[in-house]
Simulated scan of single mutants.
Amino acid sequence: MKYRHVIIIVLLILVVDQSLKFWIKTHMFMQQEYIIFPNWFRIHFIENEGMAYGLKFGGDFGKIFLTLFRLAAVGWGFYYMNKLVKEKYSRGLLICGSLILAGAAGNLIDSMFYGMIFNDSMGYEIAKFMPPGGGYGSFLHGRVVDMLYFPIYEGYLPKWIPFKGGDYFVFFRPVFNVADAAISVGVITILLFQKRFFGRHMQPKTPANNAITNDHLA
C-alpha cells in the first residue's frame, strides 16, 4: 500500500463526512429528526462544542485548546502515516490509520471553519452557507455537526437490574457523525488485531554478524 492510497482514503471519508454535514446544516434546524428505520435509526441534527459523541471539554478555552490539539494531531498523523508506509506496515493497519486520520480531520474542519461559514440553526431556523451577516462564531469556535442516531432500545429497565432497575434507558444514546464512526472503527480494529498488525515489526531483529558467527561455529 502506498502513501497516495492513504490520501485517497482520507479524502473519500472527508467528502462523505462533509457532504452530509453540509446537507444537514442547510436543510434541517436544530433537533429536527427524520426516522429512517423505525425503532433503530434516525437522522437527528445536533451540534456539540467538544469531543466525539457530544463529550465536552473545558468551556471556551477548552474549545480552543481542543481544536489546536486536533490540528497538531492531524498534521502529525499525516507524517506518521507516511512513516508507516515507508516501513511497510500491514495494509490493515494503514487502512485503520487512514480512517482515524480522516475522522480527526473531518471534525477539525467543523471546529475551525463552521462558525465562520454558517449562521446559527437554533429555533426553527435553517442555517445559510456564507450568510451576509457572518457566521455564528469565529475561527476555531465552530461546532461539530452530529446526525447519526441509533436508539436500538428505548424503554424502562426491569426492576431486578441493580442500581438502574426501573429507569428509562436508551441504547445507543450518543448522536455522532461519519468522522466519529471512522475513528471508532479504526481504533477498535487496531485493538482487536494489534498482534497481526504489529507482529512482524515487534519481533527482535538478529544482527547479521550473529548469524555469520553461528554459521562459523557450526
Results as ranks from 00 to 15, higher is better:
L101R: 05
G50A: 05
A208W: 09
F197M: 14
F172E: 08
R42D: 14
A73I: 08
L108R: 07
L66Q: 05
D110A: 07
Y34N: 08
D180W: 11
V145K: 00
N39Q: 11
T26D: 06
F171E: 05
T26K: 10
I7L: 15
W76D: 00
F65V: 14
M1Y: 14
N119L: 01
M130Y: 12
V187F: 12
L157C: 02
G155D: 09
R200D: 12
T189L: 13
V175K: 09
I109S: 10
K25R: 12
L191C: 15
Y79D: 03
Y153E: 02
K164A: 13
V85W: 08
R42G: 03
K56S: 15
Q31V: 01
L55P: 00
V6A: 12
T26C: 07
K205C: 07
R91I: 02
K128S: 14
R173V: 04
M147T: 05
K83C: 08
R4I: 10
F37A: 11
F37E: 00
G137I: 02
I8S: 11
F171C: 09
Q194E: 11
F193I: 06
C96L: 03
F37I: 03
P174M: 04
V178P: 03
R4Q: 07
F45M: 05
F198K: 01
L192V: 14
L66T: 03
A211N: 12
Q32R: 02
E47C: 03
K63G: 11
A181Q: 09
Q32D: 15
F45A: 02
S111D: 06
K56N: 13
K128H: 15
K195H: 11
I7D: 04
